[in-house]
Design a protein around this nucleic acid. Structure first.
Lengths: 146, 146
DNA sequence: CTCCTGAGTTGGTTTCACCAACTTAGCGTG
DNA sequence: CACGCTAAGTTGGTGAAACCAACTCAGGAG
């Protein structure tokens, strides 16, 4: 596959495989160890191993050695700044699922500000003010391939 | 697979297969016909057929018959309101790719308001004001599974 | 009635996810 | 120092899914 000019496609080269978003969901919610990812997700160890290395190679996670008392040094996985910015994508997916694939008992996780106010994911302009969806345009630049 | 309590997981049941986000990118940018999706993406026709039916079944796209002059009635695929809201997810993926997986010649597609102002995807509070990423919390509700 | 074209379906091959079993590298214990 | 314990993987085999090419199907045009 030749290099993708579309940013969505390039993001998906890293994020688009099965389990990747769920691994990331766990990572941003504080999971760092192989066995904990496995227990939380029920994913096969070979697949988890592959997804973690992909995310490390892409700079979304970083390996950091740790040491439990009375055990040898092992690797843990921590979210990098690039990974932290994926919370916007995760938040957007969550919001869409809440609204369009609802779970009868209600949402299990809410998005809140530090002050406790409910949050949404939305388009904002350069002043940080929300822009309604129907005013959003995707416009092609001169770099767009013919 | 039993029903997922996580909204992200439920979104991914619909959106998480290979090609789905790219099919959606084309759909929101105006593509409606099977052959045009195929030409734009280079996806195999059996896979495209499968993804389109999944998206129709999920209410993201709807089938609409159309008739080219001098041809029989065929099906086209149009974005529903639920599909339109996925532009937030697509915008978030695009923004992340622009920043963290840059394409040397620069972005090929920009996010702009109707007035032409550059847009980002971000968390906003109930008043439509942007909240910085490090003030965002994901908090569990009482519905969260033990 | 035959040709053309868009929208798929079908059959065979390769890749990928899944599962279980195995390996590896210390550390603390005896 | 040998031994067992455990987290973190790796390896090998199986079944599903993606991929590719060839084929089908429907109706209007000529």
């Amino acid at each position: 596959m030749t290099e993708q000019t579309c940013s969505i496609a390039r993001s998906l080269e890293v994020l688009g495989e099965r389990w990747t978003f769920l691994v990331l969901r766990e990572a941003v919610s504080g999971t760092t160890r192989f066995a904990d990812f496995r227990a939380a997700l029920g994913v096969a160890s070979d697949v988890l191993s592959d997804r973690l290395s992909t995310l490390v190679a892409a700079g979304v996670l970083e390996k950091r050695p740790y040491r439990e008392p009375g055990a040898r040094v092992r690797d843990s996985y921590h979210v990098t700044p690039a990974g932290h910015e994926l919370r916007i994508v995760l938040g957007a997916l969550q919001q869409w699922g809440d609204e369009h694939r609802p779970y009868a008992p209600g949402p299990t996780v809410l998005r809140r500000s530090a002050a406790g106010r409910p949050l949404r994911v939305a388009f904002v302009d350069d002043e940080g003010t929300e822009v309604p969806l129907d005013e959003v345009r995707f416009v092609r630049t001169s770099t767009y391939p013919s």
